[in-house]
Each structure stands twice: as C-alpha cells, then as structure tokens.
C-alpha cells in the first residue's frame, strides 16, 4: 500500500504550516540546472547546484536540526524570485537569509557581497578590503566557494584582480552564464550598470 501524492503533499504542507520543521526544502528547475533550495523559519539557508538530495538533507540536519522535510510550497517565494531573475525581470532578491551558522568573518564578507549590485563585478581583494581585512583575498575566495546561497548572494560577481573569472562553486560555465544574463561580461567591465539596488534583508 503506497501513500498517494495527495496525502503525501497534505502532510508535508501541514508539517510546514504547523511550524514543526527545522528546514524545508525542495528542488527548483532553472535554466542553469536543478537547484536544491532550503529555508529555515529565519530565511533562505541553502542553494545547491547538482544536488544529491539525500546528502543535502543529512548536511542540513547536521547544521540546523533533524526535522528536515521536503515541502514544495515552503520555498515557492524563492522559486518565484529565481524565475523572475532568470527571465531578466528581477535585479535584486527580496528574501531573508539565515546566516546564523556562519563565522563572523564569513558573515561580514557575505554581507558586503550582498551589496554588489546586479550587473556589477568586484574582486576578492576589494571584498577583503571592505571587510577590513585587505590581505585576506584568499580567505574571501574560500568564503565565496562555501557561499551557502549562491545566485541570491551573488558570488558570481566576484572575479580575480586580473579580470579572470577564477572559479565558481557551481562550475565556471554557470558563472559565465549568470554574468552574461546580467550583462556584466560583455562588453567591458567598466560599462555602466543599472542603478544600485538596496541589499537584501539579513537575519543573522
């Protein structure tokens, strides 16, 4: 006897609505592949490229608590904003982000990162300087690499001082695609970007 999709969905929704989850997650289809999107009651806590849901669930449970459940409706707002972003209709995300488990330096860097506007580029060194650690470009690279919520926190807008794309957690092709989507790659870096948006909300 198997559980019908309706019954299954009803339970998942009820669980989320009752506030009983440490983490709700679901997969989201985007032009750059399937993403796993997860949130806590404080906000968005993870976006993963090429996810292996079981491993992700383990890791989320380890960080946020074992009550991790796939619950499609819970991440609908994120899904919607991602769709708009990929359609070119959204230049900033309006989503709270749960960074409570980030170390202070990472949090400071991610906070700066959140202010890099759509279509703009910055460098690891510049972010390090903004976080008052001008020599920590390499450490900033590590923070970018471990960015819990890529795309929404735009680590794709961070490149090497020599103008090379350097690297990206989701693969360089994706970094390139995102920057092209934002019109940041061509023509040159110095091109005028759109008006600077306000940074996303944080809940840290």
């Amino acid at each position: 006897m198997t559980v019908s999709p309706t019954l299954d969905a009803r339970f998942r929704e009820a669980a989320a609505a009752a506030g009983l989850l440490d983490v709700a997650y679901d997969l989201a289809e985007t032009p750059i592949g399937t993403l796993l999107v997860a949130r806590t009651d404080r906000g968005l806590c993870r976006i993963s490229y090429d996810p292996q849901p079981e491993r992700e669930a383990e890791s989320l449970a380890h960080t946020f608590g074992v009550r991790v459940l796939r619950a499609a409706r819970s991440i609908d707002p994120v899904r919607r904003q991602l769709d708009e972003y990929f359609e070119g209709k959204r230049t900033e995300f309006d989503l709270p982000i749960d960074l409570r488990h980030q170390a202070p330096f990472s949090r400071a860097v991610l906070d700066r990162l959140a202010r890099v506007p759509y279509g703009h580029l910055t460098t690891y060194g510049a972010l390090a300087a903004e976080a008052h650690r001008p020599k920590a470009a390499r450490a900033v690279g590590t923070v970018m690499n471990r960015n819990p919520v890529p795309i929404v926190l735009p680590c794709h807008r961070v490149i090497g001082a020599n103008g090379s794309l350097t690297g990206y957690g989701g693969g360089l092709e994706r970094k390139e695609l995102l920057l092209k989507l934002e019109g940041a790659l061509q023509p040159a870096l110095s091109d005028a970007p759109p008006a600077a948006p306000s940074p996303p909300q944080f809940d840290v």
Binding site: M1, A57, A61, V66
Partner: peptide, 21 residues
C-alpha cells in the same frame, strides 16, 4: 544517529498507512 526526518518519513510511511488502514 537520528536521520533527517525526510528519510525517516520516506522509509516508514507506507507501513504506517497500511497499519492505519
């Protein structure tokens, strides 16, 4: 170790429904 609720739920839901039926 206690697994994520998702794995627990996936593993036992059919048996629970059978028992409740």
């Amino acid at each position: 170790a206690v697994p994520p609720f998702e794995s627990f739920y996936e593993e036992h839901r059919d048996a629970v429904l059978r028992e409740l039926r």
